[in-house]
């Protein structure tokens, strides 16, 4: 078991399986709001669903409409359980607030390296930590 310190942006404590994007994500044009499937063909996660996963990514990019996509994911019941970024930026902050999805950033390490797709995690914003329970 390993613990990673983080900053909480949207509060919440959840346990789930990680899905890790090694490259920056654009929610607008990169994720289907109706299905939760990653549609960016340049992303190695192309075709994977982020529904009920803890979605880990380095940072976000693209149009600010991405906020509405994140909100759409939650309205359509296909949202991820939580979001973890190295660096939060306003598109995802706004989206996570509207959708009420726990969102953390600023770990003391590169989360896209120390967390692997399939790892079991707990995101805990009462203690501002991620607990890595191992794959």
């Amino acid at each position: 078991m390993k613990t990673i310190k983080i900053r909480a942006i949207v509060e919440g404590t959840v346990e789930g399986i990680a899905l890790v994007s090694p490259i920056p994500i654009s929610f607008f044009g990169g994720v289907d709001a109706e299905t939760g499937i990653i549609t960016d063909s340049e992303n190695p996660l192309f075709g994977e669903s982020l529904t009920d996963k803890i979605f880990v990514f380095p940072e976000s990019k693209g149009s600010t409409v991405g906020s509405y996509v994140i909100y759409g994911l939650s309205v359509n019941n296909v949202a991820p359980l939580a979001l973890i970024a190295n660096e939060a930026e306003t598109i995802v902050v706004a989206g996570a607030i509207l959708a009420n999805i726990p969102f953390v950033d600023k770990a003391d390490q590169d989360v896209t390296v120390s967390i692997k797709t399939g790892d079991k995690l707990v995101v805990d914003t009462t203690q501002n930590i991620i607990i890595l329970k191992k794959e």
Binding site: A33, Y71, G72
Partner: peptide, 10 residues
């Protein structure tokens, strides 16, 4: 073209 369907849920 830029906002698509998600805007309506908002």
């Amino acid at each position: 073209l830029t906002v698509g369907e998600p805007i309506f849920t908002f």
